[in-house]
Nucleic acid binder design. Structure first.
Length: 318
DNA sequence: GCGCAGGTATTGA
DNA sequence: TCAATACCTGCG
């Protein structure tokens, strides 16, 4: 199926959004399993030109004869890559502000990469705190491969992200695993635990958050809240502070009025709007939401990429 | 070898 | 409310 929207799929995949790790690049396509109408499908997204996106899908080998409503698939793809967002209108908006205008060329075709599974986004966002993009994306991928459910497709085996219930019961570290299996393996060989995914001290946060979404909170309830209530709710989770909460709301649930404020955003906002004066992260967040309104999330996404790739930040990096 | 990663939790004024 | 500090760990 073909989508006639301007997008740069590679940029959207590689821009380091916390929603999920980049999809596997294979056969010149970005591939990932996505659950649609309770059936796992393998989506394969590729593009020939910047003004459209082509997506093929594969059925699981085990249910090859199943009948899937293609409209539902199209809707899901449009949602994940935010294809109904009017980029030209957004670029007009950016061009009205000389501070933002340069970001257009750096980020042309960059779209929100919305989580296919909000829980995956929550865990990957927690893993991203005080961490490098390379490391948390690897961690999230490892969690999938260790505890996700495998589905066989003609193009290979793919794993979904485990459920909160599954993740709340995994071992936290090698020692806990070692004791639990009655020391029947060498300690060094115990890798069926969270810390072996490289999440470090965030392991207990991840387990506790999984428990909360199993026993106390419903992932989908967040969707029915307004932004402020959702923010307060998500902020309760362990390992979730202001920045991670906004990432979850933006990339996991599509609240575009969120303005995740991290060190990069702080530096560039300070540089562009506050004459390089040092301002607190909470002021940056307030400023972003106030000034950019419903575009706050997109402006954050564009400024973050612009800040890292333009070389501007090397200059103003304290 | 050493410092840094898209911050958060904790503590103490 | 706000500043100071510790924190897993892989990569440069």
């Amino acid at each position: 199926m073909k989508f006639n929207s301007k997008i740069n799929i590679k940029l959207t995949q590689k821009s380091g959004q916390t929603s999920q790790p980049p999809w596997l690049f294979k056969d010149n396509s970005y591939c990932e399993v996505v659950e649609i109408a309770n059936t796992p499908l393998l989506l394969k997204a590729h593009q020939e030109d910047s003004s459209s996106l082509n997506v093929e899908y594969e059925l699981p080998i085990a249910n090859f004869d199943i009948n899937i409503n293609e409209i539902a698939i199209e809707k899901e793809i449009a949602k994940i890559f935010d294809l109904n967002f009017d980029l030209d209108k957004f670029y007009n908006y950016l061009s009205e502000d000389p501070k933002l205008e340069p970001a257009i060329d750096f980020c042309n075709g960059l779209r929100l990469f919305l989580a296919k599974d909000p829980f995956e986004c929550i865990i990957s966002s927690i893993a991203s705190a005080n961490n490098s993009i390379a490391r948390w994306t690897k961690s999230t991928a490892k969690i999938k491969e260790k505890w996700g459910i495998a589905t066989e497709f003609p193009s290979g085996t793919f794993y979904n992200f485990p459920s909160p219930k599954t993740l709340m019961n995994v071992y936290e570290d090698d020692f806990e695993e070692y004791e639990a299996i009655g020391r029947t393996m060498e300690l060094e060989c115990c890798t069926n635990n969270l810390k072996s995914c490289g999440v470090g001290y965030r392991a207990p946060y991840i387990k506790r958050t999984s428990e909360i979404f199993t026993l106390e909170m419903d992932l989908l309830d967040i969707l029915n809240m307004d932004y402020e209530d959702a923010y307060d709710e998500i902020l309760q989770l362990p390992g979730v502070g202001p920045k991670v909460a906004d990432c979850i709301l933006l990339y996991g649930y599509g609240f575009k009025e969120a303005f995740p404020s991290d060190i990069w955003i702080k530096r560039i906002i300070s540089h562009l709007y506050f004459d390089n004066k040092d301002i607190s992260l909470s002021k940056v967040r307030e400023f972003g939401m106030e000034r950019f309104g419903d575009y706050a999330g997109y402006v954050q996404l564009y400024l973050f990429h612009y800040a890292r790739k333009s070389g501007l930040m090397n200059k103003i990096k304290k």
